[in-house]
């Protein structure tokens, strides 16, 4: 008997897991983690994830014992290994497409996520605007979008083969938030833009993206520069505070 419990927040990494759970039609409990209050650094949460980051997931494993997982990519692989027996959003283990999906999933986890995250930092959260940092990470984000756009030009609909996989789901929330990272439009990336909309049309994506609270990336896209700056100033306060606390602890 499964007993999935997701600990998450409204971020690109959090919604990966809720979108996947919705795509697979699985039942799950949700606990919203308030990262602006550093809930993810409380002892009970560190028992689940010593790294103090969302998302994390617990489940009852087949042997009746609890399993606790962190790192969104690893959680996604766990869920498809255990529950996606019909291969709705994955490929059979050992197949060419299985390893290629893994390849793009790792690319998202080690490349797109961290680099776009640094772009968020220098564009939105850093206490002073450092031109070099903003340019470095916005350019790297654009480079990664180009890689993805080229791949989608070859495969036509999704990153691997002809169906949506966990690799697409992993990338989606990040690409949807491109403007927060300082990438004003996706006009230079037509395949990527079409893919963003194609994914959005999936019921699982629509349901999962609003967990644990409404997904605002598309509303954010319509805001003026000034309104966006105001949002950023609010977030910057708690982001910088959290960083200072981490630095103190060492």
């Amino acid at each position: 008997m499964s007993d999935i419990h997701l600990y998450t927040a409204q971020t690109p990494n959090g919604i990966k897991v809720s979108i996947l759970l919705e795509e697979l039609g699985l039942k799950y409990k949700t606990t919203a983690i308030d990262i602006s209050k550093n809930t993810q650094k409380e002892p009970w949460f560190l028992e689940i994830n010593p790294n103090g980051r969302i998302p994390a997931l617990t489940d009852t494993f087949t042997d009746g014992q609890p399993i606790r997982l962190f790192e969104s990519g690893s959680i996604m692989q766990y869920l498809v290994d255990r529950y996606d027996k019909d291969h709705k959003v994955s490929y059979p283990q050992g197949s060419r497409e299985y390893y290629q999906t893994n390849n793009w999933l790792h690319w998202q986890m080690a490349g797109l996520g961290p680099m776009q995250g640094q772009s968020n930092h220098f564009t939105r959260y850093a206490p002073e605007k450092i031109e070099y940092g903003m340019n470095r990470y916005q350019n790297e984000t654009r480079r990664l979008y180009r890689v993805m756009d080229t791949q989608l030009g070859k495969t036509k609909a999704y990153l691997v083969g002809d169906k949506c996989t966990i690799a697409d789901i992993a990338c989606w929330g990040w690409v949807a938030s491109h403007r927060w990272a300082g990438i004003e439009t996706l006009d230079d990336f037509p395949n990527l833009n079409a893919w963003l909309e194609r994914m959005l049309a999936r019921p699982g994506v629509e349901a999962g993206r609003h967990v644990p609270s409404p997904h605002k990336a598309f509303e954010m896209k319509k805001l003026s520069k000034e309104e966006l700056d105001k949002h950023a100033a609010e977030s910057a306060k708690w982001v910088q505070q959290g960083m200072a606390e981490d630095a103190k602890k060492k």
Binding site: N51, D63, E71, S72, G73, S74, M109, A110, P114, Q118
Partner: peptide, 24 residues
Amino acid sequence: FDNQQYMRQWMYFQASGQGPYYGQ
């Protein structure tokens, strides 16, 4: 299965948490 999942978890932490930040 359990340890396979835990192994992967740490490998993701390495690839997304250690490598990119040390790299910067």
